[in-house]
C-alpha cells in the first residue's frame, strides 16, 4: 500500500472507529438504562409486595429473565468492540470471510436501524479464508454498506451477500431501491482502500427491476504492496 493510501486508511480508520464506538456506546447506554429501570421496578415490587406472595415471586423471576437478556445484549456489543479493536493487530493474516462480514453487518445494524432500513447479511455458503489486512477489509465493506444505506429509501431492505468462485470473492450489496450513479462517490475512500489493500475492483450494477447492487470483486489472497495505483504513480480516476 502506498503512503497516500496508508494515510487515507489511517484517517478513514479513525473516523470509522469514532463512528462505530459512538454507536456502540449509545447501545450500551440503552442496555444500562433498561437494567436500571428493571432494578427500580424490582424495588417497587418488593417494596409494595404482600409477604409470601407468589405473584411477586413470579414477577421478579420474569424480570430477572429480562435483565439477563439485556446483559447478553450488552455482552454482544462488548464482543463487537473486542473484535474491532483486534482487527488492527495484524495486516497480513488469514481470517474468515463469513465471520468478518457478520461483524461488519452487526456494526452497521445501528446506522441501518436509524435509517429504517432492514440490513440482511447472507454469509457465503462455504467457509472462505481471506489473507491480508482485516481492518482494511472491514473499512471497505462498512463504507460501501454506509453509502448504499444513505441512498436507500426508509423501510426498505439492503442485502449483503458473498460468494467465492475460482480464486476470487464477490461481495454484493443490493438495495431494494434503485441506486444513484453517484453512490460510488459516497464510498470513494472505502473503495480506494479496498483497491489499495485488496486489489478490489468495484462495479455498480444497475437494473431495470430497481434491485441495484454495488459489487466488490477481490482475490482470495490479497495482492502485495506493489499492486496499487499509487505505487505505480498513476492517478486514481475514481477519487476526486
Amino acid at each position: 500500500m502506498g503512503s497516500d493510501d496508508h494515510r487515507l486508511l489511517q484517517r478513514e480508520g479513525v473516523l470509522f472507529f469514532g463512528n462505530v464506538i459512538a454507536g456502540l456506546s449509545h447501545e450500551l447506554s440503552n442496555v444500562f438504562n433498561i437494567i436500571n429501570e428493571m432494578a427500580g421496578l424490582q424495588q417497587d415490587i418488593v417494596g409494595g409486595a404482600q409477604p409470601g406472595s407468589t405473584d411477586t415471586a413470579d414477577r421478579l423471576f420474569e424480570l430477572a429473565g429480562r435483565i439477563k437478556a439485556q446483559v447478553e445484549r450488552g455482552e454482544t456489543y462488548n464482543r463487537y468492540l473486542h473484535k474491532l479493536a483486534h482487527s488492527v493487530d495484524d495486516t497480513g493474516i488469514a481470517f474468515d470471510l463469513g465471520e468478518t462480514l457478520e461483524l461488519v453487518s452487526s456494526l452497521a445494524a445501528r446506522p441501518a436501524r436509524l435509517a429504517r432500513v432492514e440490513l440482511v447479511m447472507q454469509p457465503p455458503e462455504q467457509p472462505v479464508t481471506l489473507e491480508g489486512d482485516p481492518f482494511a477489509f472491514v473499512l471497505m465493506i462498512y463504507g460501501s454498506i454506509g453509502a448504499v444505506l444513505s441512498a436507500a429509501d426508509s423501510e426498505r431492505r439492503v442485502e449483503v451477500g458473498a460468494a467465492a468462485h475460482d480464486q476470487a470473492v464477490r461481495i454484493t450489496i443490493t438495495s431494494a431501491d434503485s441506486l444513484p450513479a453517484d453512490v460510488i462517490d459516497e464510498s470513494a475512500a472505502a473503495l480506494r482502500i479496498g483497491r489499495a489493500a485488496w486489489g478490489m475492483v468495484h462495479t455498480l450494477d444497475r437494473r431495470p427491476d430497481a434491485h441495484d447492487s454495488v459489487i466488490l470483486d477481490l482475490p482470495v489472497v490479497a495482492p502485495g504492496p506493489h499492486a496499487t495505483a499509487d505505487d505505480e504513480g498513476q492517478e486514481d480516476p475514481d477519487v476526486t
Binding site: I34, E37, G40, L41
Partner: peptide, 11 residues
C-alpha cells in the same frame, strides 16, 4: 427501546 418504555410506564 420497547423494554425501556414498558418498564418505565409500569413504574
Amino acid at each position: 427501546e420497547r423494554d425501556f418504555v414498558e418498564i418505565l410506564a409500569e413504574r
